[in-house]
């Protein structure tokens, strides 16, 4: 039932002139979940968030937030959402406290309540010491924290975080991740967009991969990795004379084609996750008298997933219509 879904989008389409930003996006986010919208620059992540947060009208399709149509009743939707965009949208010449109280007034909270919430949020986001300083002198990490605090004033049912760590240094990024994990523990539904695979991998319950304005795959990080073939075993043997024997063993144990590397002594092939294949391979090779130099099992990374799904690495952007700024950080590992 739609009541159980925090976000429900069907066939969202949006074009800007000749550019197709969304080509039919479907999305379902259950209450209390943390979903990651993953894709390269220009994939349509930000446009999707803009439609869901009532900033943009879709050309076609429908979107509901807590069952409320974003086009028909935008005002009611706005009462239930928090949005943190790619820019830390704060008023630089006000203090952190004034910024929060200012947004509280725009949510029409009574003045007392606004003050109380501001105090709570400043404490929670570790901004007490800086509370009465003008934001202009804040670091990037502090601005983002304040930005998220401002999004949480009215206890939103769904929090949208559009690239919350873009442009942050590695330490602030880690702090931001911890903060986002806490939000999820509190039961806030979070929809996060990111172009960083490690971010999606670490934070998201489910990852929705979006490219060219379309959802091309979704699942947990593990499901996505399994879907492109699970783990891979790589074995290097000492002597090339044993090539045939080793190849035979691996062909029996792998569940797909075995590749032979250029040196003729290294083989790799897919294995099923959690099948305890590795001890079997080691024993079998030992029995036929093949000395193993090196053995390695690698879980595919989300990079592999992305490469398989889109035919290009995640950081190879077609264009920058999502308007992402800031230096790219490391986008590898899982």
């Amino acid at each position: 039932m739609p009541e159980q879904l925090a976000v429900e989008a069907r066939g969202l389409e949006k074009r800007f002139g000749e550019t197709v930003a969304l080509a039919g996006v479907d999305l379902e986010v259950p209450r209390g979940a943390l979903y990651g919208l993953l894709g390269p620059n220009g994939a349509g992540k930000t446009t999707t968030v803009r439609v869901l947060t009532t900033l943009l009208r879709p050309d076609a399709g429908t979107a509901r937030l807590d069952g409320i149509d974003v086009v028909a009743e935008p005002h009611r939707v706005r009462e239930r959402i928090g949005l943190t965009g790619q820019y830390a949208a704060v008023e630089e010449r006000l203090t952190a406290r004034e910024n929060i109280e200012y947004i509280a007034r725009l949510f029409h909270l009574p003045r007392q309540e606004g003050r109380r919430r501001a105090g709570e949020l400043l404490e929670r986001f570790d901004l007490v010491d800086a509370a009465d300083r003008v934001v202009k002198g804040f670091s990037g990490g502090m601005r983002r924290r304040l930005d998220i605090a401002m999004s949480l004033i009215a206890r939103p049912s769904v929090l949208f975080l559009d690239e919350p760590t873009t442009g942050l240094d590695p330490r602030s990024r880690l702090a931001m991740w911890e903060l986002i994990e806490e939000l999820e523990h509190d039961g806030t539904t979070v929809l996060l967009t990111t172009q960083y695979l490690d971010e999606a991998d670490r934070l998201a319950d489910r990852i929705v991969v979006i490219d060219h304005g379309r959802v091309i795959e979704q699942g947990t990080a593990d499901e996505l990795k399994d879907r492109i073939g699970g783990d891979r075993i790589t074995v290097s043997i000492a002597r090339i004379e044993n090539q045939a024997k080793a190849l035979e063993v691996l062909r029996q144990r792998c569940n797909g084609p075995v590749d032979v590397e250029g040196d003729g002594r290294t083989f790799s092939g897919p294995i099923r996750t959690g099948d305890r294949v590795v001890p079997g391979v080691v024993r079998a090779l030992d029995e036929v008298g093949v000395d193993v130099l090196d053995l390695d099992v690698r879980r595919p990374t989300l990079d592999d997933v992305f490469l398989t799904l889109t035919g290009r690495p995640v950081d190879a952007a077609d264009d920058d219509s999502d308007g992402v700024t800031g230096a790219p950080l490391t986008k590898v590992t899982s």
């Binding site: 009532t54 900033l55 029409h108 401002m150």
Partner: peptide
């Protein structure tokens, strides 16, 4: 340019 307009447009104001 600061993104504040986006924030304001997402508020029930």
């Amino acid at each position: 340019s600061k993104g504040l307009v986006d924030r304001l447009r997402s508020l029930p104001m």
